[in-house]
């Protein structure tokens, strides 16, 4: 495999011998300063630092600014830019076809909260192994700035139009629906987002991350609750999120009593250094209360909000054979003649 070839001396490489550049994608066509570009950069870093073979990854998306972004990271991975709001079903088919794939789906707040709410709901229920990122700017960028369902009550378009419908909190919804990993972050918070992405990749079920990602063109102004300045002022991190991959033997020094350790599906460890008092990310009720209480204050709680471990994912529930279904040889997928004879006999 090319991925294990010895790197040229002096180049910085990850544990499988790849340079950061191997994880990059095409040149972005999004607006300069778009939060989505920052998220793409964190995705590149996360996969690079975790030493994941890009060939194992499939990138999926729906339609919208967010959904263009998979073209801008992991150029050595297969990608599928599907139809508006329907990426979850495409991802479901791909993962069922080949359980060895590592899926990352990028959606937006309209793609998820409006046209795709049905598929989002059922993805959360199914616990398909996929990292599902909502690049959440509260507006439709690609069609020039209309409100999306996550736009906050009272937020204002450049044209002066005020949103008078309540927003959907995708994180609270996901928790209610049975999602097993729910996080919120901010595109400008490099450290937190990177840690969350790594933990999400290690989770092994559906990892849902709502990333507030201000739209610099249509929604980054006074009166927008998803502008850079608003989010920066109203971001309330639950604590410092740290992630230690299972292959990493670095000693971590966290003080007992102030740190919550969560072991991920693959043996990696997620550490949440507490700021919020008594916050337990494995407690569904606490997570929902926190989201409610913070949103009433107009504040975004960020960090890993909820983690449920040990629930079987969809692939495990369906009890699939270990090998990818897509490449099973004919003799394993076509029953023998005796089976057909038996069926025919039963119909005589």
């Amino acid at each position: 495999m090319t991925t294990t070839a010895a790197p040229p001396p002096g180049k910085k490489v990850n544990r499988i011998g790849l340079e950061l550049v191997e994880y990059k994608g095409g040149k972005t066509t999004l607006c300069a300063g778009c939060g989505h570009n920052a998220i793409s950069e964190r995705i590149v870093e996360a996969f690079y630092e975790m030493g994941i073979e890009p060939e194992r990854v499939v990138k999926l998306s729906g339609i919208g600014c967010s959904s263009k972004s998979p073209a801008y990271f992991l150029g050595r991975s297969h990608g599928f830019n599907s139809v508006h709001g329907r990426m979850p079903s495409v991802g479901t088919g791909a993962i069922l076809a080949n359980r060895q794939l590592l899926a990352i789906g990028v959606s937006g707040d309209g793609d998820t909260g409006a046209i795709g709410i049905g598929q989002f709901v059922h993805l959360m229920r199914r616990n398909l192994p996929i990292v599902y990122i909502i690049e959440d700017n509260g507006c439709y960028g690609l069609t020039k700035g209309q409100f999306s369902p996550t736009a906050d009550l009272g937020s204002r378009l450049k044209t002066g139009v005020v949103n008078d419908l309540p927003p959907i909190d995708t994180c609270a919804l996901a928790i209610e629906l049975g999602a097993t990993f729910v996080a919120r972050s901010f595109s400008g918070d490099k450290k937190q987002l990177l840690s969350i992405l790594k933990a999400a990749v290690s989770h092994g079920g559906t990892s849902m991350i709502d990333v507030l990602s201000p739209c610099v063109t249509f929604n980054d102004h006074e009166g927008s609750t998803k502008s850079y300045s608003y989010v920066k002022d109203h971001d309330e991190p639950l604590g410092e999120v740290s992630f230690v991959p299972y292959f990493d033997d670095i000693e971590v020094d966290y003080e007992p009593g102030t740190t919550k350790e969560v072991e991920m599906h693959d043996g990696s460890k997620l550490y949440l250094k507490k700021v919020a008092e008594n916050y337990d990310p494995t407690h569904k009720g606490a997570a929902l209360r926190l989201l409610r209480e913070t949103s009433e204050r107009g504040v975004y709680a960020t960090g890993v909000l909820y983690v449920e471990r040990n629930r079987p994912n969809l692939v495990e529930l369906l009890n699939l054979v270990d090998e990818p279904l897509a490449t099973l040889p004919l003799e394993r997928v076509r029953p023998p003649k005796a089976a057909l004879d038996e069926i025919m006999e039963s119909l005589r």
Binding site: P88, G93, A94, A97, G118, L320, L325
Partner: peptide, 28 residues
């Protein structure tokens, strides 16, 4: 007891064909 198939009742027909296309793309 392991299956060489995955049959999933989808949330609607849109998702049903989405699953089929995603799987076909991945080689199934």
């Amino acid at each position: 007891g392991k299956a060489t198939f995955a049959i999933l009742q989808a949330e609607d027909e849109l998702a049903a064909l989405g699953i089929v296309l995603g799987a076909g793309w991945a080689g199934a």
